[in-house]
Design a protein around this nucleic acid. Sequence first.
DNA 1: CCTAGCGGAATGAACGTTCAGTCAGTTTCT
DNA 2: AGAAACTGACTGAACGTTCATTCCGCTAGG
Lengths: 194, 194
Amino acid sequence: MTTTLKNKHDAILAAALDLFADNGFHCAPISQVAAMAGVGVGSIYRYFKDKDELVHAVFAKVDDSLLQSITTSKDPTLSGRCEFIHLVTALIHYLDTHPQEYKFFEQYYNSPYGLENKRAKFLQENIADKSNPFLNIFSDNKNCLRQDLTLPVYLAMTFGPVSFLLRESLSGLVTLDEAMIQQTAEASWNAIKA
Amino acid sequence: MTTTLKNKHDAILAAALDLFADNGFHCAPISQVAAMAGVGVGSIYRYFKDKDELVHAVFAKVDDSLLQSITTSKDPTLSGRCEFIHLVTALIHYLDTHPQEYKFFEQYYNSPYGLENKRAKFLQENIADKSNPFLNIFSDNKNCLRQDLTLPVYLAMTFGPVSFLLRESLSGLVTLDEAMIQQTAEASWNAIKA
DNA sequence: CCTAGCGGAATGAACGTTCAGTCAGTTTCT
DNA sequence: AGAAACTGACTGAACGTTCATTCCGCTAGG
């Protein structure tokens, strides 16, 4: 029934997230996803046309929950600097405490799967739509930021260090504590502030 | 002859680099590598025990040429800030003009293949050996740098933005020009300077 | 009893790897 | 010197495995 159907659908997505994140797309056979989801192999093809569609569905779900988690923690009374640091630390916290999601993102964006989405996000970013809170900060605080830098540099100085640190953390090479996260966010701000 | 042998060896490495970079490890079959190298499939197994060994051999070669290209361009008379910016711009230039090498690095480090090497590099970094010129800058300019930041944060603020920008450049979302590269290097320095 | 949802064996394509045969070059024999 | 035997790098068809996808028999709810 609908409830059963929904549950299987979600079970498949959850299992796929775990296995894709841990093993990569090509080392996570559908049979394994089915086994972990407690579902027959054939059932996966009832819910998803093929493996590609499953991958994109997992991305859509994970992307959605990340965006929600980041945007809900926003506080509009803060200064630009505080808002920025708050947002960066929230992002790092979310991804560091959701390693499966982060590992999936890395896999996805570094594969042909993610290219179209990446392009779409970037175009979104250029028109500064409301779905990316960082872009609002950049445009709301133009006077606090170095004017000679272009948007790609803002993005590089913001997301580059985040991505780098999270990778090291996931590899077990670094343990992220409150201080290190705070320092990274501050350093990012120092990199782009006027 | 020896020359023939050397040439086939190199031809296989070159073909493997191209195909691994463009298609990823699992979408670059040995048969295709052999075809592009102008070599029989079986010959690859004369030079490399298996596909894994081939992957690691490609990495060793690429890693070596990157390190050489970066270190030879070093100028010890410069100030810490200039030296840092010089090194960062050299790194970006090399990787942006060697997209196959960069794409291979990304693939390699984001896969089980790269984990051990990554760990090894990181441990090397902690003992500040001479093979990584960035570490020398960090240790030679302690007084110019923010003392509250730890090494992982230095590394994140240095390599994170580089990695981010190169990815955008390779995706065709950004065209890196001299100004943008310079600005990124400067911003990285501003992030970590005292 | 029927039907929609389900499971997992079956299928075929693609892959990494192997191995028996080929052949150019070298050595040995007459 | 010429022929015969040998050597080993080289090849690609063949093998076994793994995977995504299909398909048909089964089950449970109505």
